[in-house]
């Protein structure tokens, strides 16, 4: 078990080859996303609902524990939805570029995006010692690092499962992000225009 995880971190290309060869299901990818989301969500909940609300002296109409659970659950659900939606889009653009992987394999490869979140977990005790603003900055900084790190993983694993070059994999994921960002921008502008 530890070997598997170690290989995933050190050599994503080798590990995705193993996972595909062993016909690992989408559940492994889901487990990675959920565990990483719990780490990210719980730390975010602590920073927002305990440190943040204590700082501004705001008392919620419901308990802090409930608000923490809400933040954590919302964060986890959002990550699962992002994983599924972006994974399906990446799969679609992979196919357009001649990719050979199945949807399940692409989702498994895309779950590597959440793998580096363990860094936030390892450093989570420092949030207790930092003040609220530094905590937020540190959390955002760590999130950016883990995102970029995970993005590199996804490039490699997506290339491997589709027998792409890194350039093709980059193009497929880049198009996905452009589509998502364009869709969000379009929705916002339509919503703004209708008001």
């Amino acid at each position: 078990m530890l070997d598997y995880i170690g290989i995933m971190v050190v050599s994503p290309r080798k590990s995705i080859q193993i996972l595909v060869a062993e016909k690992r299901t989408i559940l492994l990818g889901l487990a990675i996303v959920i565990l990483a989301s719990l780490v990210g969500g719980l730390n975010l909940a602590y920073i927002v609902s305990i440190k943040g609300l204590g700082f501004v002296g705001l008392k919620l109409p419901f308990s802090t524990s409930l608000s923490s659970v809400g933040i954590m659950a919302g964060y986890t659900m959002l990550n699962i939805i992002l994983w599924l939606v972006l994974g399906i889009l990446i799969y679609a653009f992979d196919k357009l570029l001649g990719g050979k992987a199945s949807l399940e394999t692409v989702l498994l490869a895309y779950s590597y995006q959440w793998l580096p979140v363990f860094i936030i977990g390892l450093l989570s005790p420092i949030f207790y010692y930092l003040d609220i603003l530094t905590s937020i900055v540190a959390y955002v900084f760590l999130s950016v690092i883990t995102f970029v790190w995970g993005y590199v993983y996804t490039l490699i694993t997506n290339a491997e499962v589709n027998k792409f070059t890194l350039g093709q994999s980059f193009a497929s994921i880049l198009i996905t992000f452009i589509v998502i960002i364009s869709s969000v921008a379009l929705s916002v502008s339509i919503a703004g225009g209708s008001l």
């Binding site: 530890l2 170690g6 390892l122």
Partner: peptide, 13 residues
């Protein structure tokens, strides 16, 4: 490294 990842998940939760 695998142990480090597991530790990160446990500590992070």
């Amino acid at each position: 490294i695998g142990a480090l990842v597991i530790a990160g998940l446990i500590i992070g939760i």
